[in-house]
Design a protein around this nucleic acid. Structure first.
Lengths: 349, 349
DNA sequence: CAACGACGTGGGAGCGCTCCCATCCGGGGC
DNA sequence: GCCCCGGATGGGAGCGCTCCCACGTCGTTG
């Protein structure tokens, strides 16, 4: 005998798994009653419930998902969409952490995760087809650009959406974001506290709200410390290591006297760090460095990088929770969550 | 008017999307004929095909997936299972790369990817339920341990499976693996070529085939170079940074005269590297270092780490391809693919 | 010139559920 | 003692598709 998990699971012959009908027959009740038991309806007597439960166990019955979806017009699945281009950009563990959070929350709610990496316009269109085919009950969108029409398109299809991040200050679609402004302020405040006064920043691409917000936080931090803003201390990167390198070179050119850098991502900080090393600047003695993400890269850098941590997994959980609620209860007023960030101090400043 | 993508997509009112029947009526043909056109059957006249295609476009028809699955008993979806514990262990981008490959191949075949992170025994059981609910046509398993019964259980359910990696030398289930033995040999050969003669290794946990295979490659490499094996030069890690650190300390204790280390992962190499630094050994002057994975960590280390690259994305693609073929054509003889690895030389040796 | 395939086509019969209405039963109120 | 009501139950009617059989309509063969 092989081990069968729950009793009596007749190992899955193609000839077929038991149906509701068969369970009903075995329990000596009607189809409707079994359905009620399976779905936890209260309008069933305790006795009947027990009988049905036993029949289910004996037959190893598992409801057929396709039939359920067809009859009930819900799939118990949600899609998580990740633009492939971004997947390469971001500090690598970002999306894995996000997936982890989403997955954990969905598992609790007994829902499936459909992962969609979108790598071309063609695939994006195909994705819209999937949505129209009613494969999912809702959509989670990771990393949207400022001009992305997808969120609105999905809403037009009548599907609930929650985004990770927002496209602009006034985002109409429900979203979960981290406090990027707070991240910038915390970084600058920390640098100021260490006695730095000529603090530069390497930003992300400014068509992304996240980049603008971190830059805004940087400026707010300077203002709060009574430091004058200086556009020569601001250089635009693109969240890549090479972009960070370029931006850093520019900064050193323009303001060789800078004594600190706030990079809007760890990866760009790594790029900046290599340029600083080539330029003979010591970190942190000559130039202090702060990144964002608190990724493994930060821990492994030499010296280890001070970085602003985002609660990525928690963002994933929150997104999933919001979406599930909207699916269950219909559209609320647009909801938004902004989760706090946290400065993790290491030796780079 | 809002933009509608393809013409006439009546934006998704809950009142409902068009059905096969409606398309048939509009095109003036029968249901069966529309189905044939949608599914690309050749037994339709060119003229009819055109008429149906027009009706489809005009109505913005998209076949309902649930109905299809119910009637046709296939879902066009496959599951990718990743044990959560492993997701933390591995060099982070590993699974993202794997997902990327799988996703790309599935997109081409117009199949959906269901991602399942399994983080507990309870979730594993729930996952088996999903399989029984016939939500997917096949399963891809990432990172299996030596004693994992899941692959066999899935086969018992009658579902095609392909694994990433294998549980032992004689793996009965179809799998895709990288040439781990070759990886170890290449690393050792390179170190020997650089004049090193007292080459140590930090292995992975030896209950995983991948760890045993890399160790086997290391030994084969020594033998080919005519070097005597020495068990004092072998230390077991667990694929974590801390594990690498511990193993390295042990090695330095036992053989302070070692002049090279082959670590079975980049992350462990990073751990080893920090211990070497604390011990005042210079890399590569005193001790040369080689890792496995060619992860971002390798590039960012100081000095950048020589590492054996695995074609992770390609493994993902291959797995998906194998699975799709098995779904389409039924079980073949067990198939296995071992993909070549490649040494990426950097300054650490 | 009749018979016969082959090709195109229409549509019935499910697939296995959920929804919902009709039915049944027992107990309490008058 | 009769009627009414509410809880428990059975089962018909789909959900939208695929499968497959049956039915023309031709062109072809003997």
């Amino acid at each position: 005998m092989s081990y069968e998990g729950s009793s009596g699971v007749v190992s899955g012959r193609q000839s077929g798994r038991p149906t509701l009908e068969q369970v009903a027959a075995r329990a000596g009740v009607g189809r409707g009653t079994v359905s009620r038991v399976i779905n936890g309806s209260p309008r069933v007597s305790e006795q009947t419930r027990t009988a049905v439960a036993r029949a289910v166990a004996e037959l190893g019955y598992v409801p057929n998902q396709a039939a359920r979806a067809l009859a009930g017009s819900r799939t118990d699945a949600i899609a998580l969409v990740i633009p492939e281009a971004e997947a390469r950009l971001f500090a690598e563990p970002y999306f894995l952490d996000l997936i982890r959070g989403v997955s954990a929350e969905l598992a609790e709610a007994d829902k499936q995760l459909l992962l969609t990496l979108v790598r071309s316009e063609q695939e994006r269109q195909r994705f819209e087809q999937y949505l129209a085919a009613q494969r999912v009950d809702g959509v989670l969108l990771a990393s949207v650009h400022g001009d992305d029409p997808l969120p609105d398109r999905i809403r037009e299809l009548g599907l609930p959406v929650v985004m990770n991040g927002r496209r602009s200050e006034a985002e109409p679609v429900p979203y979960v974001d981290s406090d990027n402004i707070g991240a910038g302020r915390a970084a600058v405040a920390h640098l100021v506290g260490r006695g730095r006064g000529r603090i530069a920043t390497v930003t992300g691409p400014l068509d992304m709200y996240v980049a603008r917000a971190r830059l805004g936080g940087y400026r707010a931090g300077l203002a709060e410390a009574g430091l004058a803003p200086d556009e020569a201390l601001v250089s635009t990167g693109d969240f890549t290591e090479e972009g960070g390198r370029r931006a850093m070179r520019l900064l050193l050119d323009r303001r060789p006297d800078l004594d600190a850098v706030f990079a809007a991502s760890d990866v760009m900080a790594a790029g900046a760090r290599s340029v600083l090393r080539e330029a003979g600047r010591r970190v942190p003695e000559d130039v202090a460095l702060v990144g964002v993400d608190d990724s493994p890269v930060a821990r492994l850098m030499d010296p280890p990088l001070t970085s602003v941590r985002q609660p990525i997994e928690e963002m994933g959980r929150t997104m999933a929770r919001m979406l599930i609620q909207e699916i269950a209860e219909g559209p609320d007023e647009p909801r938004r969550h902004v989760l706090p960030t946290e400065l993790v101090v290491r030796r780079s400043c």
